[in-house]
Design a protein around this nucleic acid. Structure first.
Lengths: 103, 103
DNA sequence: AGCGTAAGACACCAAACGGTGTCATGTCAA
DNA sequence: TTGACATGACACCGTTTGGTGTCTTACGCT
């Protein structure tokens, strides 16, 4: 299965996820309409997202509808949460400095 | 300035960040020693991280010491937090189903 | 002074990436 | 049934990427 980090590294792919977040289900042609690139490119991006488990697709007549599956993003959330302490620590140190100054 | 998402997309670069998280400051050669790739490659990865604002460097004698700067990761944290509702919603719906089942 | 080590700066390479255009197929609708 | 539309599947292309090796410069140590 594809890597979720690199799947999300591309801005177009992040926009696709965002579209799907608002719409539950969208066919390829409708998404293509909202991008400056061609259908083939959008289709490839969606294939990458699917490979990473971030979308699922279903055929409905002549169109293929895509659906968001956010679950794999938890890996990123957990990863980034590790580094959270590096900015909260800074805030804590800043607080200490202010307390020293004021009292 | 470089994109923080693609900076973080590479597993080697994530490992570099992790090393710096534990060490506060590390010279290039010391980091290189812990990777299967050559010095030039590691140096380039660090340049990408620096371009994204994720590390800073400082010359100390003949070595260049790198330091973690996690702040730009907040952008990713904020981005991913938007999608958080998509898995908490699922858990909520699961809870509802269980409550229905049990009475 | 002279040796060994740390790193920057290239030039170079194969593979992956993001994009295109085109052709074939299947489906909806008049 | 015929035409228009939605996709999949290719082949193709320029650029970026992740890696190498090599040369040079600059420190540090003895």
């Amino acid at each position: 299965m594809g890597d979720v980090y690199s799947a999300v590294a591309d801005p177009t792919r992040r926009q696709l996820l965002r579209l799907l977040a608002d719409a539950d289900e969208l066919p390829l042609h409708e998404m293509t309409a909202r991008f400056p690139v061609g259908r083939t490119a959008v289709s490839k991006h969606l294939a990458v997202l699917k490979e990473a488990g971030l979308v699922s697709d279903r055929k409905a007549g002549r169109e293929t509808r895509y659906h968001l599956n956010a679950a794999p993003l938890r890996e990123i959330q957990e990863w980034v949460s590790f580094y959270e302490r590096f900015w909260t620590e800074r805030i804590d140190r800043l607080k200490d400095l202010l307390e020293e100054e004021n009292g």
